[in-house]
């Protein structure tokens, strides 16, 4: 169980939205929060975080502004927009439905077919 899982394709966006939904974060903070929530079981390529952040911002789901970090340095903070909130909602529902469905399929026993 120690081994880190690779991120499923297309799920990084959802995780970022979730991370910033708990409060504004800078890029490094997003990374730390995801690792913290996942208890370090997800492997995220650090560099890949930024194109994803820019994409989400470009789509209007998160917004950014410059602020001051914990150790008094200039950092760019991201927060969830109203559109992003809706997006996170639908994405989570979709994900849960999909996960249930897949799990149901994988659990199917012979006699149930």
């Amino acid at each position: 169980m120690d081994k880190q899982l690779e991120l499923l394709q297309g799920t990084l966006d959802m995780l970022i939205l979730k991370a910033v939904s708990l409060g504004p974060l800078h890029g490094y903070g997003v990374l730390l929060r995801i690792q913290q929530i996942s208890k370090d079981r997800l492997e995220i390529q650090q560099g890949s975080l930024y194109p994803a952040l820019y994409r989400l911002e470009h789509q209007g789901w998160i917004a950014s502004e410059w602020g001051e970090s914990e150790n008094k340095r200039k950092a760019k903070y991201y927060r969830l927009t109203a559109a992003g909130k809706r997006r996170l909602q639908t994405e989570s529902e979709k994900w849960n439905r999909m996960a249930d469905l897949i799990a149901g399929i994988l659990d199917t026993k012979r006699e149930e077919v």
């Binding site: 560099g47 930024y50 470009h58």
Partner: peptide
């Protein structure tokens, strides 16, 4: 090292912004 290729990230970032 762990961050990865900075230039590539920037290029992808520009791409992401259109």
């Amino acid at each position: 090292l762990e961050f990865g290729g900075v230039e590539r990230v920037k290029e992808e970032g520009r791409e992401a912004r259109g």
